[in-house]
């Protein structure tokens, strides 16, 4: 292959493609390709040694009874059978799904609203964008503790504030109220997560051609109408992406619950992460915890892969 043609290439050139087309006797090329495996070796070692092997060990241990200290006893499918008939497991699945649903919906709606508001480009909109993103910058543990202090039924900020402005009758137990605990934790999840969809919706809005919006204006589509009939359909691909990302990130919920309620009151906020942690590290049932981990990992991974596949088909282009 000539140098001239190589220069003409507009797409980033793949050196391999080059070498494939070059005559097999080009020895210089061969020496250049020596050591290619070195590029991937460190990744294989790290991912293999500390991701793949642990996961395989987890799958194996799922068939054993193990208290984390002594030797493990093979129990076949008993752990899986136990998980499927464990009401606590299904309860924590349900709580987790409620959290995922609430957080994903809330972040999408609020993120889109904020992005639309910022899109009017009023003076100082960039400052507002930074302010809105800040809530996601605070470490999650710190966020949980802070909101725990705000919603503290004793002398928390919210009750103190309500008392000070003469609304003492609205003071509540907040996180200690079994009906409010999960909604409040979802609210904190939205507070943490809203920045990302806001940024993505903003970027999506910037890509809509101004001419199109002007045309819509002339056709009498402005305000809410314009958002509903013109902007939302154009933002659909972005919304698919934010929804997938929000599901993936919100299903991780662990630290906020840990520091805010510990899963309570009762089992009102007993998310899967907390149940898995307790099963392993409080009750020392490592085999059972591994079995539940395998179920969760496989179901979550597989359903998200399917969702991503559908999303890619749904996305034009």
């Amino acid at each position: 292959m000539s140098t001239a043609r190589r220069r003409l290439a507009t797409k980033p050139l793949d050196p391999v493609r080059t070498s494939r087309r070059s005559p097999p006797n080009s020895g210089r090329r061969l020496t250049q390709h020596k050591g290619r495996w070195l590029f991937l070796l460190p990744s294989f070692l790290l991912l293999g040694g500390f991701v793949v092997v642990p996961l395989m060990l987890g799958i194996i241990l799922a068939f054993f009874q193990w208290n984390g200290l002594g030797s493990a006893t093979f129990v076949g499918l008993a752990n899986f059978v136990a998980a499927i008939s464990d009401p606590k497991f299904w309860h924590s699945v349900a709580i987790t799904l409620w959290y995922v649903f609430g957080t994903t919906l809330g972040c999408n709606v609020l993120g889109l609203s904020l992005a639309l508001a910022l899109f009017t480009k009023f003076r100082g909109w960039k400052i507002f964008r930074t302010l809105f993103y800040l809530s996601g910058v605070m470490p999650i543990v710190a966020t949980g503790i802070t909101w725990g202090l705000i919603f503290n039924p004793g002398d928390g900020l919210l009750n103190a504030f309500l008392g000070a402005i003469g609304l003492r009758q609205f003071e509540g137990l907040w996180l200690a109220n079994p009906h409010l605990a999960l909604p409040l934790i979802i609210f904190v999840g939205i507070w943490i997560g809203v920045g990302l969809p806001m940024i993505l919706f903003s970027a999506g809005l910037m890509r809509i051609s101004p001419a199109l919006l002007e045309a819509a204006d002339l056709d009498g589509a402005f305000g809410v109408k314009r958002v509903w009939y013109v902007i939302l359909p154009l933002l659909k691909p972005v919304m698919i992406v934010t929804t997938l990302m929000l599901i993936i990130s919100s299903i991780q919920v662990f630290a906020t619950v840990w520091v805010m309620t510990g899963g309570g009151p009762g089992y009102a906020t007993y998310v899967l992460g907390i149940y898995l942690y307790n099963t392993a590290f409080e009750y020392n049932r490592f085999g059972y915890a591994n079995a539940m981990s395998v179920i969760v990992a496989v179901v979550a991974g597989a359903s998200m892969m399917v969702a991503m596949k559908f999303a890619r088909i749904a996305e034009p282009g």
């Binding site: 642990p54 060990l57 241990l61 942690y277 981990s293 969760v296 979550a300």
Partner: peptide
Amino acid sequence: PQFAVMVPVWSY
């Protein structure tokens, strides 16, 4: 989810 690999990683 990371909590689903927590116990396998700890065991390992």
